[in-house]
Design a protein around this nucleic acid. Structure first.
Lengths: 340, 340
DNA sequence: GCGGTTTCTGGGAGCGCTCCCAGGTGTCGG
DNA sequence: CCGACACCTGGGAGCGCTCCCAGAAACCGC
């Protein structure tokens, strides 16, 4: 970026608007920022001048002078390729955008990769954004803590394993899983297993805890656990493992629909009818959960709402509101379909 | 955004780095911008000072002083909700990000909605970004032309119907469709129809033209055309329409896989076997094209490459390179599966 | 009518950087 | 030994805005 981008874009400056409207810079600035203490007369003159001159304020100057960027970052700390096609990401993005619309806040999308973490941190802390939303954390990613300690307002999507005290928003994975477990019990299943998510992710741990709680409160053993990594293949492998360990399984809670799809195939291959022989409950309510064979009973989480809530929480903090909840859990809902 | 965000983030300034390194501001600036004419001694001293002080440059100040934002915008001019879950968008985003990685250029994601177009334009032209990538255009959207006339470097994804002279990158829809048509001819189909995309989108028109060319060069009539709007439902409706008009159809080129999925269902419902009775060729090579029943023969377009190429073209322009092609068409590939 | 308050206005001083220019120091050829 | 030309360095002047302060004008009640 050298030559061409150096050409200064023309367009009028605040000064010229002021002259055209017959007022001072300060007054124009007040109008633009919708501050009080401007006479209707001045206000209209300024609006008129802005319109006729086609003025648009220089954001960099506003940021520099006002030490406010009017932008927030959405930081995706994961391999870009994997995340972008993920409906979770798309849903959050939709929510963030919905919450942002109408406000004059821009969204900067950043993806951390191996190696450029320092660049990312330096950019975020460099004052180009007012705050950050961080999603898709692996394991004990130190990023939230680092950013938080650097004084950057942030909200994490999904409970971070590292970084206590950092505000986050998450689906209520524990209670969702608990509801799934209760549902399996309530439809008369006696030998209930679970396919849990990765052990190094909070979402995996919380859903496993919920299932365990459900088993314990029903007086059932809570040891039929296999682990996957949120892929259909891992779900299939875990299902095979479970059937090997106990062929009498008649109910299984799978901690993610994407794994449940793999599990369904394995059950089919083993001649198990769903839900007659084995009842299956998933989690997430993916689009494909409704069209799987059989359609999947699952726990719905509202990812768009997650994005909205994260954004709301961040903007609230930036606005200096007090009484904001440190962290939030969003309710989930049992969606009954054919598989359980 | 008032109170909290006004707190000036601490951290050292360029000035302090200069003092710590025992050099001037100018020298520090040169080191940061990797300019020549700095002694190794100074350079190392500055690097050391930056590291120990944890200095990170203020982007707003750089932008203001240098009239260069080090950021580009990805503008999605469509309803946010629809686009974000679209694999096309995800693919482009992945490509853009891949091409950007390693360079110090940030990506600002913007979605235009009804009404806030003026805000969007004012932001883009306001100097907060150096250039823009614009995708997902409807009909004769005037946005590219407007931005281009405002002097903003931009590259459009997909041939824009309005705005000649605006550089764009697109898949070679014409030749892709031509290849599809030729394939249908080559597998011995004699009565070949097409389900075209929306008439107000270049992608729809170009694919239709390609199919027409294929029909004409094979000496076939090119009048079995029905239109859809890139939804499965519209594909189904168009297929029904075509079968009504000519039950003897034995080949159909569907201008988008998403519509082909709907068409397949209709063919099945009408008792037509695919490909025995009717051969079907799609376009796009969606993930679900490989798993449809039967798996869909289709024309693959590389959307990630599209994103990469757009970005490369824009960055090239920003760097003042000359000899850049005004516009580019990316090759497509016939993927043979079971449906044709 | 006068102090006190509220409303409104303008100018000055930066925000933290990059660019430009002036000048210093070294190296080389004549 | 001196000019020419590299190389390297520092300071000043902004970039275009917002904030702060001082002050003018309008309004109030007693």
């Amino acid at each position: 970026m050298t030559d061409a981008s150096r050409i200064r874009r023309p367009g009028p400056r605040l000064e010229e608007v002021a002259r055209a409207a017959g007022v001072s810079r300060s007054t124009v600035s007040r109008v633009i920022n919708e501050e009080p203490y401007v006479s209707t007369r001045s206000r209209e003159a300024v609006h008129q001048a802005i319109l006729t001159l086609g003025y648009s304020p220089n954001q960099a100057a506003r940021t520099l002078a006002g030490s406010r960027a009017n932008a927030i970052a959405l930081v995706v700390s994961e391999q870009a390729g994997r995340v972008l096609s993920d409906p979770f990401f798309a849903g959050v993005l939709r929510g963030v955008h919905a919450e942002l619309s109408g406000r004059r806040v821009q969204l900067v999308l950043m993806m951390s990769q191996q190696g450029d973490e320092q660049d990312l941190i330096s950019y975020l802390v460099g004052g180009h954004v007012d705050g950050a939303l961080v999603i898709s954390l692996h394991g004990r990613d130190p990023l939230p803590l680092t950013l938080s300690e650097a004084g950057l307002p942030l909200v994490v999507g999904g409970r971070p394993l590292a970084g206590k005290g950092v505000p986050y928003v998450d689906s209520d994975n524990f209670n969702g899983a608990l509801e799934a477990a209760r549902h399996l019990v309530s439809v008369g299943r006696t030998c209930i297993a679970t396919i849990a998510g990765a052990k190094d992710m909070a979402v995996g741990m919380d859903r496993l805890s919920g299932w365990r709680r459900g088993m314990v409160e029903a007086g059932r053993p809570a040891d039929l656990v296999a682990y996957g990594d949120f892929t259909p293949e891992s779900g299939a492998a875990a299902m095979r493992d479970l059937l090997d360990r106990n062929p009498g399984i008649d109910g299984v809670f799978v901690a993610a629909d994407i794994m449940a799809l793999g599990a369904l195939q394995v059950l089919h291959a083993h001649g198990k009818r769903v839900p007659d022989d084995v009842a299956v409950v998933g989690f997430d309510d993916l689009v494909s959960a409704a069209t799987s064979v059989p359609p999947l009973t699952t726990i719905r989480q509202d990812v768009e709402q997650l994005g909205r809530t994260m954004t709301w929480r961040l903007l609230g903090e930036l606005a200096g509101e007090d009484g904001l909840p440190p962290s939030l859990l969003l309710p989930t809902a049992l969606i009954k379909r054919a598989s359980a």
